[in-house]
């Protein structure tokens, strides 16, 4: 369960100025729920996601995930929190281009020094699911956009996260690949994962597996 309580987020710009990205937001996401955050660019969607993932801290208010006050965690504990709970799908894939597909997927697991047999099985499973078996050893920068997106999804899922966060996941994909992505997303809904998508792509607007759509405007929930 994810809870944002009276969250305001300001960004300092320059020496004195500040941008108010979020204004006194309250948000509740249930376990297993799929939520779409929509709104124009600059409305504060990414900021909400980064607060949930504890990449950032609210200026006022607090963020609570599974009873844990993640907005109070010190930097290294936020990392541990993400490692255990969050799977990230970014707008720009955010893969490490000079590593192979397999190496990219392993990255989130490296710090926990996994058992190598278990890891092999997990990778086989993921790469099969995303029909990437033949691309395992290929360097990511030599993969097509769709393949890169699938590698990015595989990476987000490798740690079995309870929360999946996708920031503009279709922004760099053409229509066909976008629909493909939506199919994958549909399969991820299993009642255990909360999925939060931030997007202004109309493709998402009338999908029946999305439980709730939230409109954001100028840092406020409408």
């Amino acid at each position: 369960m994810i809870e944002l309580k009276n969250v305001t987020k300001e960004f300092k710009v320059g020496a004195k100025d500040k941008v108010v990205a979020l204004k006194d937001i309250n948000l509740h996401v249930q376990k297993g729920e799929i939520v779409l955050l929509k709104g124009p660019s600059g409305s504060g969607k990414s900021t909400i996601l980064s607060l949930i993932a504890a990449l950032n801290k609210p200026t006022i208010g607090e963020v609570i995930v599974d009873g844990k006050r993640v907005s109070k965690l010190a930097d290294n504990f936020t990392s541990l929190f993400r490692r255990e709970n969050i799977g990230f799908i970014f707008q720009r894939y955010n893969l490490i281009p000079s590593l192979s597909a397999k190496e990219n997927v392993i990255v989130p697991l490296i710090p926990s020094n996994p058992d190598s047999n278990w890891l092999e099985d997990r990778l086989q499973e993921l790469f099969q699911n995303f029909s990437l078996e033949s691309k395992m050893e290929v360097m990511v920068k030599n993969l097509s956009g769709g393949e890169q997106q699938r590698v990015a999804i595989a990476r987000a899922l490798v740690n079995n996260p309870s929360i999946i966060i996708a920031d503009e996941p279709t922004a760099n994909l053409d229509k066909k690949l976008s629909l493909e992505f939506i199919e994958i997303l549909k399969k991820l809904k299993n009642g255990h994962n909360s999925i939060i998508i931030a997007s202004h792509d109309p493709l998402f607007f009338d999908l029946d597996f999305i439980d709730r759509q939230i409109d954001i405007h100028n840092g406020e929930i409408l």
């Binding site: 801290k57 609210p58 200026t59 907005s71 109070k72 010190a74 930097d75 290294n76």
Partner: peptide
Amino acid sequence: DLNSTTPLQYKLEKQSF
């Protein structure tokens, strides 16, 4: 002060490493 959300506290958290 772990409860504080000031930039100073963030800085100290990082410097502690």
